[in-house]
Design a protein around this nucleic acid. Sequence first.
DNA 1: GTGACAATGTGATAATCATCACACAGTCGT
DNA 2: ACGACTGTGTGATGATTATCACATTGTCAC
Lengths: 217, 217
Amino acid sequence: MKTKESKIPEATIKRLSTYINCLERLQVEKHPVISSEMLGEYCQVSPAQIRKDLSYFGEFGVRGVGYDTKKLEAEIKEILGLNYNWPTTVVGVGKLGLALLNFTLFSQHGFSITAAFDNEPGKIGTELAGGIIIQPTSAIEDTVRDRGILIGVITTPADAAQKVADQLVAGGIQGLLNFAPTKVKVPEEITLRNVSITSELDNLAYLMTQKKKTRRR
Amino acid sequence: MKTKESKIPEATIKRLSTYINCLERLQVEKHPVISSEMLGEYCQVSPAQIRKDLSYFGEFGVRGVGYDTKKLEAEIKEILGLNYNWPTTVVGVGKLGLALLNFTLFSQHGFSITAAFDNEPGKIGTELAGGIIIQPTSAIEDTVRDRGILIGVITTPADAAQKVADQLVAGGIQGLLNFAPTKVKVPEEITLRNVSITSELDNLAYLMTQKKKTRRR
DNA sequence: GTGACAATGTGATAATCATCACACAGTCGT
DNA sequence: ACGACTGTGTGATGATTATCACATTGTCAC
Ligand SMILES: NC(=O)c1ccc[n+]([C@@H]2O[C@H](COP(=O)([O-])OP(=O)(O)OC[C@H]3O[C@@H](n4cnc5c(N)ncnc54)[C@H](O)[C@@H]3O)[C@@H](O)[C@H]2O)c1
Ligand SMILES: NC(=O)c1ccc[n+]([C@@H]2O[C@H](COP(=O)([O-])OP(=O)(O)OC[C@H]3O[C@@H](n4cnc5c(N)ncnc54)[C@H](O)[C@@H]3O)[C@@H](O)[C@H]2O)c1
């Protein structure tokens, strides 16, 4: 029990990401400096929580004054590793995949999508905005390796997710973001995150149902 | 401190949603019954966690045997309120909005999208697959009220999110799912969830950076 | 019927995370 | 130069959530 340091709550990381968004907006609105109190207003987090979150990584504010919005944004990006360039690929160029491929704001966070794959003959060879050409899934392994792609985003139907994940891993991918509603299995050393949009809606439905119930009594 | 009952962890609700997915797959694969151990395998949750999650709501298993996949799925859907029909609308028919509008699996969870809005003249009046006609945002309030729409999904750019939220609320919406990277403010009684795809990627980048660091030492 | 067995349901325990409260550091006006 | 003031950084405290361990209960073979 010597190598501590990674005692950082998962929830803290999530919040850091939202701080970035707020700080970007604050700069646009010409606020060079902000207190944890105000920042808390903006992103709906308690001031104490913000200070605690940041304190895990160092001291970024000036006592009696607050935080330099521009500097703090840069610091958080550094913490999250967003100053690095992350070559990324999307597998499954369907409705969701296309939305991600055309989403320009990812580049601001250091993600550059440099390849796309699908298995539908009609789609293969199509050129997307940005000059990316859809490749067949058979090319996943080689392309990932050759271009040093580090992050793979899976937007295929659920039954294809595991196969695609295996191919990405074979090519040497290091991180996977899976949108398919199934948990894929990957080796220990691969970082994996599942995101489920449906479960967000489910959650909403639950909260609404609860609220309705309490209102009734 | 009498009215307890809603002591259910947020994380539990999230997991319930993933259990549904697994249970659906298990039925397709002809497993009529499953143990918490096996279900844990499938959705990467510890068996004890699954049992605890379910125990908040009742007893759904048979000791010595396990859970009836079909029944359990129905029970969880009941718990989450997914057996109810939730009239839903999407505001901002861009790339992401379109993906959601065309996503057929939502209906299986009780969500039926019955209206769509945008403010771009070129899009207004367009008929989408499913027969939904894109309406101008000026019609939000009336349409939401007239059709009794309960859930609003916001997929506009960030700077339009608050305005759109206000309009939905004015129409009597009860729940909001916000995809724009800004926190909107709504009255207490409205249920609100923000979902940030970018923050999922940020999170992935952080985890990968950490892993790289520990590997180095 | 009855006993061996298998997997649930749950109180107790441990770990994680958020909140609080305040000492302390930096700024600014005079 | 100094004192009043403001807002940070953080140990202590409290709340929430996950894990453990096992007593309990229904099943099934004989
Ligand atoms: N709103 C949404 O669109 C939404 C919401 C929640 C979850 N999801 C999930 O995201 C995934 C994609 O959803 P979508 O709406 O874009 O579906 P889609 O059908 O529009 O797109 C799927 C794409 O994957 C391709 N594909 C199929 N099998 C493949 C394979 N073996 N290898 C490579 N490509 C393959 C198809 O050709 C298609 O282009 C699904 O798993 C879905 O459940 C989508
Ligand atoms: N992959 C993604 O597409 C992605 C990922 C993460 C977050 N987001 C967020 O989701 C939102 C939508 O993203 P997108 O890629 O679909 O953008 P988009 O530009 O394709 O779509 C936005 C749509 O909203 C409409 N719109 C603009 N102002 C409006 C208003 N006042 N009222 C109603 N409609 C209005 C536009 O006409 C357009 O159709 C954005 O806030 C974006 O940051 C998208």
